[in-house]
Simulated assay, not measured.
Amino acid sequence: MAKIVNYISESFEELKSNVTWPTWAEVQKLTIIVAVFSVLFALATWGVDEFFAKVLAGFFNWIKA
């Protein structure tokens, strides 16, 4: 149990002293960038899904006829 407590204690100390935290302005800017790219990726995925759904529906209708 002492090893676990020591590990957690050292982890918090490393986070306080060795990690370079971004400024609030950087966090806001990067959050907006991630949100925009997430929306763009979701739209691209939706578009590809719709395209292939129509292609497959057309293919199966062609086979059925």
Rank of each mutant, 00 (worst) to 15 (best):
W21Y: 12
T31V: 04
V19Y: 00
V34D: 02
S9F: 08
K54R: 14
E26A: 05
N18M: 08
A57Y: 08
E14T: 12
S9P: 01
L15M: 15
A42Y: 12
K54Q: 14
N18R: 11
W24T: 13
S38M: 08
L40E: 11
A57M: 11
W21P: 00
F60S: 07
V39W: 10
N6P: 01
I32N: 05
V34C: 03
K64G: 05
V36F: 01
V55M: 09
D49W: 08
A25I: 04
G58C: 02
F52P: 01
V19F: 03
N6W: 08
A25G: 01
S17W: 00
V39I: 15
E10F: 01
P22E: 06
L56I: 15
E13K: 09
I63K: 02
F60C: 02
D49E: 08
K16Y: 07
G58M: 02
V55L: 13
G58E: 05
N18G: 14
S11T: 10
S11C: 03
F52H: 08
N61V: 03
A25F: 00
S17Q: 15
F37I: 15
P22M: 05
K64V: 14
S11Y: 01
L15T: 03
A53S: 11
V27I: 12
I33N: 02
F12L: 12
L15G: 13
A25E: 13
I8F: 02
L43H: 04
V36H: 02
F51S: 09
A44L: 15
S11I: 00
F52M: 14
I32H: 07
N6T: 14
V36R: 06
F41A: 13
F37N: 13
W24C: 07
Y7E: 14
A44M: 13
F51L: 15
E26M: 04
Y7D: 14
A44H: 04
L40Y: 02
F52L: 14
F52R: 10
S11A: 03
A53Q: 10
T45Y: 08
W24F: 11
K16L: 13
S17N: 15
A35R: 04
I4F: 05
E10Y: 02
K29E: 13
K29S: 10
K54S: 12
N6H: 12
V55I: 07
F60K: 06
E14C: 09
D49P: 00
E13M: 07
V36P: 00
